[in-house]
């Protein structure tokens, strides 16, 4: 009996109870996690995703091959081959090669473009099975990244 009294008297687990109360309190709060493949978060409009080429309302390339993006790119992943065609005053990109493998998504190319011809879209699932799939040519630059199915 005396031992029990002593135990109660020296019982001083306030710090631990305080901590346990915090964790207990959190049981009744809303979950903040997202069940990823089923639920998806929408990135903000300024999100820096994959580089894409844009077309104007007539379906023409907005790019005039001023090479500003080529020059500013810190990792040199953009290459443009300019060309001329009939019915267009400015030059247009015959080739627009982009190596996403090495892109650091800094957005300096979009910032340097005076014609609004490129943008970083809001894709964030950019993983591929092969390194070759990261090497984008002009045709692929307009399209969203193809969805990759899981395979063994």
């Amino acid at each position: 009996m005396k031992g029990l009294v002593n135990f109660v008297k020296t019982f001083n687990y306030r710090d631990l109870i305080k901590g346990a109360a915090v964790t207990f309190k959190h049981q009744f709060k809303k979950t903040v996690t997202v069940q990823y493949p089923k639920q998806r978060l929408e990135p903000f409009p300024r999100f820096r995703g994959r580089l894409t080429l844009l077309k104007d309302e007539n379906g023409e390339d907005k790019c005039v091959c001023c090479m500003a993006c080529v020059r500013i790119c810190p990792t040199q992943v953009i290459e443009i081959k300019p060309g001329k065609k009939e019915g267009r005053k400015t030059r247009y990109p015959v080739e627009y090669n982009f190596n996403m493998d090495r892109c650091i998504f800094c957005g300096l190319c979009v910032e340097s473009c005076n014609f609004g011809a490129i943008e970083l879209n809001n894709e964030y699932e950019l993983a591929q099975y092969s390194r070759k799939d990261f090497y984008l040519t002009k045709e692929k630059m307009y399209l969203p990244t193809p969805k990759v199915e899981y395979r063994k």
Partner: peptide
Amino acid sequence: FEMYTGGRLLTT
């Protein structure tokens, strides 16, 4: 950060 700069970790 993402809302303002577009990047979450490497903000530039």
